[in-house]
């Protein structure tokens, strides 16, 4: 959890907006540091978190969260965190074996033309079961949070963009609208912006479709002027608030630097390296 980002987004673990869909995207840079921020943020806010870790192993997320002061292993034991480790789940589908006792959540790997229905079923049961793991209701958790890291890997695994958009719509309806929880999704785009409109399939289309639905976007980019060791890139924060009938959009641009135990955000051109 980065306090600077909290003050930018004007949210604290004690008070944050519910029913929000936060989209994190990146281009020519790595936005996964924001995923770690939101993971530790919601765990501290005592939310019940369902995390789809599709690209990294659990120990990776755990090691990073240790540095941010949150223990994933403990949260998992307490039933606060439900972690789906995509890498270990996928192996039994990619290498067919005789004994298959695994869950059905990743079964789109066997045949990607089928929808992501089982993955959604997994999310729905884990999100809506309110404290089923804790015996006697020892701990009461706040609103549910769904986090996905990252959504675009589903496209690499052969799922069509339409299916991923459907999936995210279902999740949005269940988590944000029905249960008044929050949702954080990461989409990673290819290096350069696609200018040709003929090939409309892929992460660009996914990004556009999700941007249309979300309430807050954090778009991470590399510096337009090129690589720099001391400024890792820029984040464009864009709020879309619906107040009454009018929809007002607000944009802010920050540069950031990730360090060992957090990240610092500053206005453009005010890095300590150039001042």
């Amino acid at each position: 959890m980065y306090t600077e980002l909290n003050s930018i987004l004007s949210s604290t673990p004690d008070s944050f907006t519910q029913g929000e869909f936060i989209l994190v995207s990146d281009r020519q840079s790595d936005a996964s540091f924001l995923i770690h921020h939101f993971l530790s943020f919601y765990l501290r806010a005592r939310c019940r978190v369902c995390f789809l870790g599709l690209v990294q192993s659990f120990s990776h997320y755990n090691a990073v969260s240790q540095r941010l002061g949150v223990s994933l292993a403990q949260a998992k034991e307490k039933g606060q965190l439900i972690f789906l480790e995509g890498l270990t789940e996928s192996l039994s589908f990619l290498i067919p074996q005789e004994t298959s006792t695994e869950s059905q959540a990743m079964d789109f790997l066997r045949d990607p033309t089928v929808s992501l229905r089982h993955l959604y079923e997994f999310i729905r049961t884990s999100v809506s079961s309110s404290g089923g793991g804790g015996e006697g209701g020892a701990e009461e958790w706040g609103p549910p949070v769904l986090m996905v890291d990252d959504l675009s890997v589903l496209l690499s695994l052969g799922v069509s963009t339409g299916a991923v958009l459907d999936f995210s719509h279902y999740c949005h309806a269940t988590v944000c609208s029905q249960l008044q929880g929050n949702m954080v999704m990461l989409v990673r785009c290819s290096e350069e912006e696609e200018v040709d409109d003929g090939d409309d399939e892929g992460s660009e289309r996914l990004l556009r479709g999700l941007t249309h639905r979300c309430s807050l976007t954090l778009h991470v980019q590399g510096l337009p002027t090129g690589y720099c060791r001391d400024i890792h890139g820029q984040v464009e924060v864009c709020w879309r608030r619906r107040q009454g009938d009018a929809q007002n959009t607000q944009r802010k641009l920050f540069q950031y630097k990730v360090n060992d135990k957090g990240a610092s955000f500053f206005a453009r051109g005010t890095s300590s390296a150039v001042l």
Binding site: S57, S90, S156, G158
Partner: peptide
């Protein structure tokens, strides 16, 4: 087979991580 190589690399990562 647009997704063949990426799917393989995903499986390779899953194997190597463990």
């Amino acid at each position: 087979y647009r997704h063949a190589l990426t799917t393989f690399l995903y499986g390779l990562r899953a194997l190597l991580r463990s």
